Amino acid sequence: MQSLSLQQLADLIGASLHLSGNDSEDTQIHSMSTLANAGIGQISFLSNSKYRSQLSDTRAQAVILHPDELSHCPTTALVHANPYVGFALVAQALDTTPDAATGIHPTAVIAEDVSMGENVSVGANAVVETGVELGDNVQIGAGSFVGKNCQIGRHTKLWANVTVYHNSVIGEHCLVQSATVIGSDGFGYANDKGKWIKIPQLGRVVIGDRVEIGASTTIDRGALEDTVIADGVIIDNQVQIAHNVEIGENSAMAACSVIAGSSKLGKNCSVAGLCGFNGHIEICDNSHFTGMSMVTKSITEPGLYSSGMPAISNLEWRKNAVQLRKISSIAQRVKDLEKQQSKK
Rank of each mutant, 00 (worst) to 15 (best):
G214Y: 08
Q2N: 02
S307F: 00
A321D: 10
V239Y: 15
S53F: 15
Q54S: 14
I219F: 15
G291I: 07
V79N: 05
I327V: 14
V138F: 13
F145Q: 09
D95L: 14
R52F: 07
I199A: 13
L19P: 11
V146K: 05
A38R: 01
P310I: 14
L9T: 07
T130R: 02
Q42V: 09
T130N: 03
D23F: 12
H18K: 03
S168A: 14
S313N: 07
R154K: 07
V79L: 13
C174F: 13
H288M: 05
L9W: 13
V239E: 02
L324N: 00
G248H: 07
D285W: 15
E225Q: 08
N237L: 06
G117T: 00
Q332N: 10
A36F: 04
E316D: 05
M1N: 07
N82G: 07
I327N: 03
N82T: 10
S329K: 13
N82S: 05
S251M: 00
A254H: 01
H18V: 11
A242E: 05
T163E: 07
S49R: 06
N320V: 08
Q54A: 12
L315S: 09
F145T: 11
K267W: 10
N278G: 15
V233F: 01
K50C: 02
V334L: 08
N244I: 07
K198C: 10
H166F: 13
A111S: 11
V85M: 05
P74V: 12
G308Y: 00
T227Y: 11
K195D: 02
S306Q: 11
I283S: 06
G103F: 13
T218R: 01
H166R: 06
R204D: 11
D26N: 12
W317L: 07
E133L: 08
A36Q: 14
H72T: 08
L12R: 10
A142D: 13
Q61T: 15
C73M: 09
I13F: 04
T58N: 08
V138C: 08
Q151S: 09
A62M: 12
G183K: 03
G123V: 01
L46M: 12
G143H: 10
I104V: 13
V127S: 12
T218M: 07
T96D: 03
L6I: 03
G303P: 01
E25W: 00
A254F: 00
S251G: 11
R210L: 10
G303C: 00
G222T: 03
S313W: 11
A215E: 12
I140S: 04
G131E: 04
K339H: 08
S168I: 02
V120Y: 11
N82H: 14
K193A: 12
G117H: 10
S263G: 05
V239F: 13
S71R: 10
M116H: 04
C284Y: 15
T102C: 05
A311M: 14
T227P: 06
A81P: 01
G273C: 04
G14T: 04
L134A: 04
M294L: 11
S20E: 09
V79S: 02
I29C: 08
N125S: 01
S251R: 01
G273M: 00
D220R: 06
G141C: 11
A242S: 14
Q323L: 01
G188E: 04
I283K: 01
I213S: 04
N48K: 14
G86A: 01
N244G: 03
G194N: 04
E225T: 08
